[in-house]
């Protein structure tokens, strides 16, 4: 529960649009309750800015309960801030101290161009999914759901990969801006399930090719992605992606 309020100094990246040059601006905020979420603190700041006649800070957010994957702030050098396994919207001000200076930056990757201020364009992720992150089954073609037996362990493991919210924290955290954790989560989920196995080779080949086209960096196994992932997606999925990819390349008929 709340105990008093705090005053903070925010250093926020401001950038008019994708082509202009950005810079940090410093904003003092006060009267911040420890029960506020980080984004609510931004709401307060934005209200103040508007009242002062300054344009508010643009940032992406939607569900504010850690599942839509839209919020994307790089706070004090970490995507989604200082706590593990949560998104920016789930970060509460009780994680900070009165008098703190907080630096807030957008995700930085050439595959995620800045739209404005803290909002970036993550459509590269959609294009990767469009290149193969699905099971090719038209509506109405399915057989009874219980005809496919799936070991609980496989279903659980597939779920742990499918829990990815596509926020891009993995890319933001990686020093190479690599999208391997994101891609591996989808490849892994579908590779673990019998429904996905049918087209697993084509899927992994196409998704990796698209990932490379988008200009993400390569994985150097630093593990920062998994450590910063709000859903705790494991590096095991990247290993599975590697296996799937190399075995597909060796044995598929796609020359």
């Amino acid at each position: 529960m709340s105990e008093g309020t705090m005053s903070l100094t925010l250093k926020v990246w401001r950038q008019k649009n994708s082509t202009s040059k950005g810079e940090f601006k410093t904003y003092p905020v006060s009267g911040i309750s420890s029960d506020m979420s980080f984004l609510e603190m931004f709401d307060v700041l934005n209200e103040e800015l508007i009242t002062k006649g300054e344009e508010s800070i643009a940032f992406d957010h939607d569900c504010r309960e850690g599942i839509c994957g839209m919020c994307s702030m790089y706070i004090n050098g970490r995507p989604h801030g200082p706590k593990n396994a949560i998104t920016t919207c789930q970060l509460h001000m009780r994680s900070f101290k009165d008098g703190d200076t907080i630096t807030v930056e957008p995700w930085r990757a050439s595959a995620f161009p800045i739209v404005k201020d803290l909002a970036v364009n993550r459509s590269a992720f959609d294009r990767i999914i469009a290149s193969g992150g699905y099971v090719s089954v038209n509506t109405g073609n399915a057989k009874d759901a219980n005809d496919i037996l799936i070991p609980k362990e496989d279903a659980d493991e597939a779920f742990s990969a499918a829990a990815c919210i596509g926020c891009g924290a993995c890319v933001a955290a990686c020093k190479n801006a690599s999208a391997m954790l994101f891609v591996s989560a989808k490849v892994s989920q579908l590779a673990l399930l019998p429904q996905g196995k049918v087209e697993s080779q084509k899927r992994v080949e196409n998704m990796v090719a698209q990932m490379d086209v988008e200009g993400f960096g390569a994985c150097t196994n630093t593990g920062a992605c998994s450590a910063e992932c709000p859903k705790g997606i494991s590096l095991e999925h990247i290993a599975r992606l590697n296996r799937e990819y190399f075995s597909a390349k060796l044995t598929s008929n796609n020359v």
């Binding site: 250093k11 940090f24 790089y74 004090n76 050098g77 970490r78 630096t103 930056e105 930085r108 990757a109 050439s110 595959a111 955290a173 020093k175 190479n176 801006a177 690599s178 200009g215 993400f216 960096g217 390569a218 150097t220 196994n221 630093t222 593990g223 920062a224 450590a227 910063e228």
Partner: peptide, 20 residues
């Protein structure tokens, strides 16, 4: 990899080993 991240962060504290 450098091209994939042309602009660096002002503050960085990511959880990975220095060696990696």
């Amino acid at each position: 990899n450098k091209k994939a991240r042309p602009a660096d962060y002002a503050v960085s504290n990511t959880s990975s080993t220095w060696a990696s």
